[in-house]
């Protein structure tokens, strides 16, 4: 198990695929651990990519700072990991908390990237997200990691995914419960206490950007992704059908396919963001569809509106 060092801390990472291939770096969400990217690793390597995954400070097998985790440390650790990849093209993707870390990296080191894919992401804490985040933190404090998982599972995954697992949920939760420590999760959550919105800096991101948002994402709804689309010039928003916040878990094959196609388009010079809004296919390999002209993609019902 290889480790990077960041100050006095060790960061566990994994690097697979051909050394001279374009690389995808995948950044975990808050309660995630790097093994959850296994489907992506296999799919992207099969499509000719090199894949780097890692546990953030405070997660999984990486060191868990006891009292404070600064979000700057995640960006620095990510920079160390990307340094390991050499000079080839690098595509960076992250989900939720990891998407926000990826955004910060793109703001600070955008020239190093060939493409960016924020997923279920946000650049600022809306009142809803702030209050939900506070409630989740209280849930963690009062009920432990298991209770936090109990809250997140139904919020972030569909009935279709949950239904066959209803009588096996303890098993589904167990690995996450084993590798996540309360104090480390709490430190990660409390790293938002002095969070400053990234929105004013988003315009500095010039790299091709594909923003992925689940159709039914409750935790980080469309409006939060719209901020990214509106501010990042070479971006497009892709809505994942029938998906919730954790669509990377639920629709791994489809999402990995979209990641590979985005990188292929960028490398071939075909990518044009144009701040367009697209609807992802239901299955891997299907066609993306333009969001119908004239309708408001921020609404849940077909109301006429105009794209800005």
């Amino acid at each position: 198990m290889p480790f990077l060092t960041h100050g006095s801390y060790r960061i566990r990472y994994e690097l697979d695929g051909p050394a001279n291939a374009p690389a995808y770096v995948l950044v975990n969400g808050l309660t995630q651990y790097s093994e959850l990217w296994r489907t992506y690793r296999d799919a992207l390597i099969a499509r000719g990519f090199r894949v780097a995954t890692f546990d953030l400070l405070g997660q999984g097998a990486s060191d868990k700072p006891t009292l404070f985790i600064n979000q700057d440390d995640h960006v620095l650790a990510l920079d160390r990991l990307i340094d390991e990849l050499g000079d080839g093209p690098v595509f960076l993707s992250g989900i939720s908390f990891g998407g926000m870390i990826a955004l910060r990296y793109a703001i600070e080191h955008g020239k190093r990237l060939s493409g960016l894919v924020p997923m279920s992401c946000f650049a600022e804490l809306s009142p809803q997200l702030l209050l939900i985040g506070n409630a989740l933190r209280t849930g963690l404090i009062l009920g432990g990691t298991g209770y936090l998982q109990d809250l997140l599972l139904p919020m972030n995954l569909s009935d279709e995914w949950l239904k066959p697992l209803l009588d096996k949920l303890d098993g589904v939760k167990r690995q996450g419960w084993l590798v996540n420590d309360i104090y480390a999760l709490q430190n990660l959550m409390e790293s938002f206490l002095d969070f400053q919105p990234l929105t004013p800096q988003l315009a500095s991101i010039a790299v091709p950007t594909m923003i992925l948002n689940g159709e039914f994402d409750f935790l980080t709804p469309r409006a939060l992704h719209e901020t990214l689309r509106a501010e990042i010039s070479n971006s497009a928003l892709v809505i994942i059908q029938r998906a919730y916040h954790a669509f990377t878990l639920e629709k791994g094959a489809l999402t990995a396919d979209l990641l590979a196609r985005f990188a292929d388009d960028v490398l071939a010079g075909r990518w044009q963001g144009n701040k367009a809004v697209w609807i992802a296919p239901e299955d891997p390999g299907g066609e993306l569809t333009r969001f119908p002209a004239g309708y408001d993609h921020l609404r849940a019902i077909p109301v006429m509106g105009k794209l800005t």
Binding site: L67, F68, I141, L142, G144, I182, Y183, Q186, E190
Partner: peptide, 17 residues
């Protein structure tokens, strides 16, 4: 014990931070 420890810990976190 593990569950109670998670709750007891909050006093230490609040003081140390």
């Amino acid at each position: 014990i593990e569950f109670e420890s998670g709750r007891l810990l909050q006093a230490q976190i609040m003081f140390l931070k």
